[in-house]
Amino acid sequence: MSRFIQTLTRPVLEDNPITVQLLGLCSALAVTKSLETAFAMSAAVAAVLVGSNAVISLLRGVIPHPTRLVVQITIIASMVIVTDQLIAAFAPELSRQLSIFVSLIITNCIILGRAEAFAMTHGVTESIADALGNALGYLLLLTCVGAIRELLGRGALFGHQLLPLAREGGWFQPLEILHLPPAGFFLIALFIGLSSVLRNRSAKAAP
């Protein structure tokens, strides 16, 4: 059980998929304009990641080595399409907001990365723990970036206006740039830098 917890928590901070493994950056840049889309995207990624890690780990004994990438991506793509269809059927509003980014989960390197690097060589329970951990790590970063961009770019969180906008008679002048695509690059770069500094410091502190 302790190993389960360890596998689960390691990717959240220490081996975060975005700031340390540098995977899944494209989607992280795209859906962090508001907290709501960041959450929804993380949930979709978590669903696909857990599903694909579990299935690939189950099949790891039979997946032939030469075509393993083909098999992995087929399984991942199918899961993404099913997830996309489910969202379109049961949460149409969300589906419109996330637009193409759900189908682009197929090319989200976190999924294939974890399948190839972890699920192919580990048991089902551990693979699920790894998937959950990575999904949590992804969620954590998306939440931080999304919260900063929505709060400072729009004065709101989850669509609720927290800071009264200047153009509506309040005092808050939103930082337009945070609402625009480049802000995603800047913030994620800051987080990558921050995590790198922290890791270097703890590596030096360790004997």
Binding site: T7, F118, T121, H122, T125, E126
Partner: peptide, 17 residues
């Protein structure tokens, strides 16, 4: 668990059967 449940370090083991 199974023969494949190795530690994280030995990760990329020999190819499947």
């Amino acid at each position: 668990m199974s023969e494949h449940a190795t530690t994280g370090a030995s990760g990329r083991g020999p190819p499947s059967p």
